[in-house]
Amino acid sequence: MPDDNGFEEAGRMLTEVAGVRAPDGQAAQAARLVCEEYADAALYHHSVRSYYFGAAWARARGLDFDRELFFVSALLHDLALVPPFDSHTYAFEEAGGHLARVFTAGLGWPVQRRDRAAEVIVLHMRDDVAPEVDVESRLLQVGTSADVSGSGLDAFEPAFREALVEAYPRLGFAGSFVRLFRDQAERKPGCAASRLVAGDWPERTASNPLDGR
């Protein structure tokens, strides 16, 4: 049964959606538990969907990627939007990168791998990265863009999109996420979130086809 935050019991996460698998193991489980604990259900579901969108995009193109690194980065990428980790000086993606470094240090990851987790999170809010240059960063860009504003959704089969939203419902995500970005924009002028809010991103997010399926 869902708890007061809209979550079902711990450990409920599906490891496969429409043939796309998520990793298991200590790092993946820890990232899932931390995201589930600190994010509300809508933001948690977004983080998981972002992973599945990115992994599905890679599978369709035959791209090899570090599944554990990508999953951990996807589950942590928005945690700096929540009050315990919000920074009043750093853009949320930069604060999220620092959070990822601390989190993965606790897992015993070497410095280079910790840096990669931070880099993937920071770059998801930057200009597109070519997959041949940095595949995990590109996958997080693809996954978050599809899930937030619907950008690139045509690359995914309708059956996959249906299965993913069925497994991890939207729960009013669009409205709550726009509010989070507006808050970032007001407090941190010049950040990537403020540039999005100043354009048509809020309207595109509100009209994401995933919400009208």
Rank of each mutant, 00 (worst) to 15 (best):
F103I: 09
F103E: 05
T104E: 07
T104M: 03
T104K: 03
A105V: 01
A105L: 12
A105P: 01
G106K: 02
G106P: 07
G108Y: 02
W109D: 01
V111D: 10
V111Y: 12
A117T: 05
A118H: 05
E119Q: 15
E119V: 00
E119I: 01
V120Y: 10
I121V: 06
V122T: 11
V122D: 02
L123S: 08
H124V: 02
H124R: 09
H124N: 13
M125T: 14
M125R: 14
R126E: 13
R126S: 14
D128H: 04
D128T: 13
D128P: 08
P131F: 00
V133W: 03
V135I: 08
V135D: 08
E136T: 02
S137D: 08
R138V: 00
L139M: 06
V142Y: 12
S145N: 15
S145D: 15
A146Y: 05
D147S: 03
D147H: 04
D147M: 01
V148A: 12
V148I: 15
G150I: 11
G150R: 15
S151W: 04
S151V: 15
G152N: 06
L153W: 10
A155Y: 01
A155P: 00
A155M: 06
F156T: 07
E157F: 13
E157N: 09
P158H: 01
P158W: 00
A159I: 01
A159W: 00
A159C: 05
A159D: 14
F160S: 03
V165K: 02
E166L: 09
Y168P: 07
Y168W: 14
P169A: 06
R170Q: 11
R170C: 01
R170H: 02
F173H: 13
A174I: 01
